[in-house]
Write a protein that binds this DNA or RNA. Sequence first.
DNA 1: AAGTCGTTCAACCGCTTTGTC
DNA 2: AGACAAAGCGGTTGAACGACT
Length: 330
Amino acid sequence: MSRKPCCVGEGLKKGAWTIEEDKKLISYLHEHGEGGWRDIPQKAGLKRCGKSCRLRWANYLKPDIKRGEFSYEEEQIIIMLHASRGNKWSVIARHLPKRTDNEIKNYWNTNLRKRLIDQGNDPLTHKPLASTPEPATPKTSDLQDDSNPSNLDEQYSHSGSMSPESLPLSSNSCNILEISNSDETPRNYGSFNSKKLSSTSELLNKVATRAASMGNIISASMEGTLIPSTTLSPPCLNDGLSETSHFQMDEFDIDMNFDFNNSEHDFSEFLEQFSNNAAEEADNIIGYDQDLLFSDVSSTRVDEDGMTNIPGWSNYLLDDSEFSYDTNQD
DNA sequence: AAGTCGTTCAACCGCTTTGTC
DNA sequence: AGACAAAGCGGTTGAACGACT
């Protein structure tokens, strides 16, 4: 009845991969391309199961993987998407070019999750811990159709959905991700004096509300679950993501373009537009010198020049002059 | 120097989804 | 439609490492 495990005994090796094994796998994939993972170990001379080979390649060896520290912008995207989508690591990874879902998941568990906790927020719901006496009730976005119960509500019920006001940036407890006060990228994530924050919190709440809404829109649209609603004016987003979509969210006066056809790379630009929109409005709020969370999003676009910035793991790959990755295979 | 503890992250496990015949 | 294989996905594990005592 139960399916036979794909990686059972038979002298298959487990654990950390050696450089020799990596080279064998790379060499084979370079020559034959991806696919047919079940046969790859034998053909490549590896005592590994196919699944292990696939994971090793996808999470570590694949040339177009960016490794190393996450940027502030990447963190913001992860937090925002996690707030709206929960532990959908693969969905989040689609918004972070060259990052793997595994790496994002690890980074969340080892860094961002703890940071939220330190700030007094529930990493699951993104709501302040002290003010969540009862289990978080799934909150249906305004964009979702109640007549379609199969989509997001169910996911949200166990994946940490949130309402816009519950974004980590906008907690009522005034624990917010740091706002830089200069042109530097923020580094610390401390708490703010609550008295100084009345207007700031208001602004952040607005931005966070927009971020959450836009995150929902984007995520829903990418999954094809976006329901046409009055909050979006036509042409709407659920038209197959085949062309540049024009946002006009009446609720927030957002009016911008976003090319879903190239969403991985344009998402940051989208956020930048989004940020600029917020910044304009921020200027109207008691002279707040805003340099908000998305202020540097424009640099989110990762380097396009290959692997020159990839530390560590790739060195020996690059040293292997015989290995050159064919991007057409991707 | 040695032991303990905490953190990180690559790798694994098992389940689900998707594609093919 | 059903069976099967491949791939995708998210949770968990454990080795390696650094910090601390």
